[in-house]
Simulated scan of single mutants.
Amino acid sequence: MFGHSYSLIAAIVATFFAAGVVKGVSGMGLPTVAMGVLGSLLSPLAAASLLLVPSFVTNVWQLFTGPRFGALLGRLWPMMVTIVLGTMIGSALLTGSRTHLTTVGLGVALMTYAAYTLLGRPFHVSARREPWLSPLIGLATGLVTGVTGVFVIPAVPYIQSLDLDRDDLVQALGLSFTVSTIALAIGLVWHGAVPAGNLLTSTLAVVPALLGMSAGQAIRTRISPPLFRRLFLLFLLLLGLEMALHGLL
């Protein structure tokens, strides 16, 4: 992990291990935790570039754990196309000079996701509305991804509203996160915003992320996943508030 101090290297390793634990316990959250914590230590742009490889590896793993990849891709491809389009547009702001705006945006995205998941009521999207709503949700998700590096708003609540069974839901989230990661990588590379040192660090960060996932899967059998999830969301809510205030002050 060249170009970073030893204390920052330790923080990066600990962050990806902790993010892996969250993903191992809850099935999601690695990019969100990594962006939230690293975004409070580095610029959102630097945090996003470190996130790319661990996010890609862990989400591809999640994507191919289920048997219905082809069917889900056939159903969700309009959303995936507009995720790419929105991310390419939004990444222009993430790679720009107004870093305080991206910090505020990252904080708001974390708070929105945490608050909705804690307090929001599940909703249902009918099959009649899905053809026109999916591209709009994809575009909004892509814009948020491009600006903040966070993939979950509004993609996660929307995919959860499609009445998929558990295995299909996990695989659909893996598909959305994988496409978002690839689109973010393309956007950052297009703008020349991925230094070679950060790419190497991102590659090495796969190791603590996978170790954390294994630890999280073991922990899951010993704790209450709903309680863990609530504590995790409260942490994101407070972290997002701190980042938004820091970017505004």
Rank of each mutant, 00 (worst) to 15 (best):
residue 162 L to P: 09
residue 202 S to Y: 01
residue 215 A to H: 08
residue 232 F to G: 03
residue 94 L to S: 03
residue 197 G to E: 14
residue 244 A to M: 12
residue 82 T to F: 09
residue 161 S to G: 07
residue 38 L to H: 12
residue 137 I to G: 01
residue 68 R to V: 10
residue 47 A to R: 08
residue 221 T to R: 15
residue 60 V to E: 01
residue 89 I to T: 10
residue 68 R to T: 06
residue 102 T to W: 01
residue 106 L to A: 01
residue 41 L to C: 07
residue 71 A to L: 13
residue 53 V to W: 00
residue 215 A to L: 13
residue 21 V to W: 07
residue 246 H to E: 13
residue 235 F to T: 09
residue 162 L to W: 13
residue 53 V to P: 00
residue 230 R to A: 07
residue 67 P to H: 15
residue 234 L to N: 12
residue 120 G to W: 08
residue 200 L to S: 02
residue 158 Y to Q: 12
residue 59 N to C: 02
residue 6 Y to M: 15
residue 230 R to E: 10
residue 218 A to R: 15
residue 131 P to E: 10
residue 211 L to P: 00
residue 169 L to K: 02
residue 213 M to H: 02
residue 130 E to W: 11
residue 234 L to K: 08
residue 61 W to L: 09
residue 56 F to I: 00
residue 145 T to I: 15
residue 83 I to W: 12
residue 21 V to R: 03
residue 157 P to S: 10
residue 5 S to I: 14
residue 240 G to L: 04
residue 116 Y to L: 14
residue 212 G to R: 02
residue 160 Q to F: 08
residue 115 A to P: 02
residue 234 L to W: 15
residue 14 A to D: 08
residue 86 G to S: 14
residue 47 A to E: 11
residue 78 P to D: 01
residue 128 R to H: 14
residue 204 L to F: 05
residue 100 H to S: 15
residue 107 G to H: 02
residue 166 R to M: 11
residue 43 S to P: 08
residue 154 P to V: 05
residue 69 F to T: 13
residue 235 F to Y: 14
residue 105 G to P: 04
residue 234 L to T: 14
residue 164 L to G: 11
residue 174 G to I: 10
residue 11 A to P: 09
residue 52 L to H: 03
residue 142 G to R: 04
residue 219 I to E: 11
residue 249 L to C: 10
residue 207 V to L: 11
residue 43 S to E: 14
residue 92 A to V: 06
residue 3 G to D: 10
residue 16 F to I: 07
residue 123 F to W: 12
residue 237 L to E: 07
residue 190 W to E: 09
residue 162 L to E: 10
residue 30 L to E: 00
residue 182 I to H: 02
residue 81 V to E: 00
residue 79 M to F: 04
residue 217 Q to T: 11
residue 68 R to G: 10
residue 120 G to D: 12
residue 44 P to D: 09
residue 127 A to K: 15
residue 220 R to S: 10
residue 34 A to C: 11
residue 85 L to R: 04
residue 204 L to M: 13
residue 214 S to N: 13
residue 71 A to D: 13
residue 195 P to Q: 10
residue 34 A to G: 12
residue 64 F to R: 09
residue 242 E to F: 13
residue 131 P to V: 10
residue 22 V to W: 00
residue 118 L to H: 12
residue 130 E to G: 04
residue 116 Y to A: 09
residue 84 V to L: 09
residue 70 G to Y: 09
residue 228 F to G: 03
residue 207 V to D: 01
residue 95 T to H: 08
residue 171 Q to P: 11
residue 93 L to H: 11
residue 62 Q to K: 07
residue 86 G to Y: 03
residue 229 R to I: 11
residue 134 S to A: 15
residue 82 T to N: 06
residue 73 L to Q: 01
residue 137 I to A: 03
residue 152 V to R: 08
residue 165 D to P: 05
residue 79 M to T: 01
residue 165 D to Y: 03
residue 219 I to F: 13
residue 90 G to N: 07
residue 183 A to F: 02
residue 169 L to T: 04
residue 131 P to H: 04
